[in-house]
Design a protein around this nucleic acid. Structure first.
Length: 538
DNA sequence: CTGGAAAGCGCC
DNA sequence: AAAGGGCGCTTTCCAG
């Protein structure tokens, strides 16, 4: 769309605001003042459709001018997303093409017109699909919450990252030289093609069978892990990969994205970007900040609070397994969560046939893989790969699991049956995801569809629950005029920046709202950490 | 020179 | 034959 070139005077102000809000990128071409005036006009006018989705990042500006986003009721992007969240884009031209089979010209007035007509048509569809309450009670109320979170941003310690960058630079160079030395030549370690050539042709390491023919040679983690026993280079490459990955993706990239006006990092949350109802995060993605390795935790420690403040992070404990318990009503699982048992230890005890007190750490680790695997639809082959055991042995574990957790088996079967019948699955709150391949004759496609059908209600309900908690917590923060700010959401975790004096109140408020889901068969448990940075939370 | 696909990998 | 659900970012590589 060419908003900047369009003579604004030719279209009514109200209609221009429509097109701006319709997801076109036109916002960037308008001055804030002009935009605010147009939105004000839009909101005060008698209109059939009002959209806000793409305006959320400017919300702080509007509220500063006393313009409330009340009366906003219709957003074509959110409607389109709810009707079928699997499309990659819900922008106006894409949604209009799908709903009306209409190719947009780029004319501003046309865009404005279509935004209104699309909203009306999609609204009807949403009502017919029973999605009204998800729209009214979850996705729309969440918009201003996300706007405030994006506006608040998060502080990062650039000096610490700068020091890390210098140090990593040296370590990467040393690691590269070591690899060159041992391989007897210099090459681009970052190039899988060149690396594969060196490992398998020059060094003569065994090519994993499944990658030998037809498919390309793989140098992925699991392959290099397997080769690490044969030769020292694969391990060095894995080290090198970790260092370069973390340096380029986080240590060097994040400081560049700090906003001048705030000195902070501001992500953009995508509300229409996932097939399950989860949020996404871009520019930067703050939902994949490292934590697993020591170096990763060092990076995470660079996420800090302002002086006089602390970070408060609240995590749902095992939310997807709890939802599995809820949906399946499996006796063993439900009772375990009600008692507050360690679920991985219970599964280890059940699957390996030993008393809970006799469960070893290895048992528990394997059981953890099994528990998560169930949620994701893991196969015997996948489990065997993961645990380094025979597929036949993995099959026994899986069979033993379903033997003990018979309710889970029944839930999976019922979910698949429903998916085959309706061609879609639902979350607890009625959010839908079409599963078109569920009856496919292609076993591969059907397999994917079946795993998706089982996972989506769990992942999607977890997403709904945390969205609801976010709405309620934000409401309380606003109502009580607290200084605390919600800053990040990482799927089952919320992060707040809290003044020292509000810590106790926020701890109670956040726990209360996140655990508030009395409709479930099992309690939701939230673990809260508080500290000076995102790493050192206690 | 740019856009996009593919590989790889960070998180939940 | 494939083999674990959901994302976004960086790099390489190649076509246009």
């Amino acid at each position: 769309m060419q908003a900047a070139d369009e003579p604004a005077a030719t279209a009514p102000l109200e209609r221009i605001a429509f097109s701006v809000a319709g997801g076109s990128g036109a916002i960037a071409t308008l001055s804030d003042k002009l935009l605010a005036a147009r939105v004000k006009n839009l909101l005060e006018g008698e209109t059939t459709a009002k959209t806000i989705h793409d305006l959320k990042s400017s919300l702080h500006h509007f509220s500063a001018q006393g313009i409330a986003l009340t009366g906003v009721r219709h957003d074509p992007m959110l409607y389109s997303y709810l009707l079928n969240p699997t499309y990659s884009s819900h922008a106006l031209p894409d949604a209009a093409l799908r709903r009306f089979n209409l190719k947009m010209s780029g004319n501003l007035a046309e865009a404005a017109d279509l935004t209104g007509r699309l909203a009306a048509a999609l609204r009807k569809d949403v009502e017919d699909e029973g999605l009204t309450s998800v729209y009214d009670e979850i996705d729309v109320p969440l918009v201003p919450v996300l706007a405030r979170m994006e506006g608040a941003g998060v502080k990062i310690d650039t000096a610490a990252l700068s020091r890390m960058s210098t140090k990593l630079e040296r370590e990467i160079e040393a690691k590269a030289q070591d690899i060159y030395q041992r391989c007897g030549l210099q090459f681009n370690i970052n190039s899988p093609k060149q690396l594969g050539d060196v490992l398998f042709n020059k060094l003569g390491l065994p090519m994993p069978v499944k990658y030998g023919k037809g498919k390309k040679i793989s140098t992925a983690v699991d392959v290099l892990e397997g080769l690490a026993e044969e030769h020292e280079v694969p391990r060095l490459v894995l080290d090198y990969r970790q260092l370069t990955k973390l340096k380029s993706t986080y240590v060097d990239a994040l400081p560049v994205l700090i906003r001048n006006s705030s000195g902070r990092l501001h992500t953009t949350f995508g509300q229409t970007g996932t097939a399950t109802g989860r949020l996404s995060s871009t520019n930067p993605n703050l939902q994949n900040i490292p934590i697993r390795t020591e170096l990763g935790r060092e990076i995470r420690a660079a996420f800090t609070a302002e002086p006089g403040h602390v970070l408060l992070a609240a995590d749902y404990s095992q939310i997807e397994l709890r939802l599995l318990a809820h949906f399946s009503k499996d006796k063993l699982l439900v009772e375990a969560f009600r008692r507050g048992d360690d679920i991985h230890t219970l599964t280890a005890s059940q699957v390996f046939g030993v008393p809970p007190l006799m469960v070893t750490p290895e048992h528990r680790r394997a059981a953890k893989v099994v528990n998560f695997g169930i949620v994701y639809g893991l196969s015997a082959f996948g489990l065997s790969q993961n645990l380094g055991i025979e597929p036949s042995e993995a099959r026994k574990f899986i069979d033993a699991y379903f033997e003990k957790y018979s309710g889970v088996r029944a839930f999976i079967d019922a979910t698949l049956e429903q998916a085959r019948r309706d061609g879609k699955v639902k979350t607890l709150f009625g959010r839908i995801r079409p599963i078109p391949d569920i009856n496919s004759k292609n076993a591969n496609q059907r397999g994917f569809a079946e795993r998706t059908a089982v996972n989506t209600p769990l992942q999607g309900t977890a997403a709904d629950l945390i969205k609801l908690a976010m709405i309620r917590i934000d409401e309380e923060i606003q109502k009580r005029r607290l200084k605390s700010r919600m800053t990040l959401q990482v799927h089952d975790e919320l992060v707040f920046e809290v003044p020292e004096c509000e810590v106790d109140g926020m701890r109670r408020l956040v726990r209360e709202q996140m655990e508030n889901a009395h409709v479930l068969e099992v309690p939701l448990v939230v673990e809260i950490g508080i500290g000076p940075n995102w790493r050192d939370l206690e």
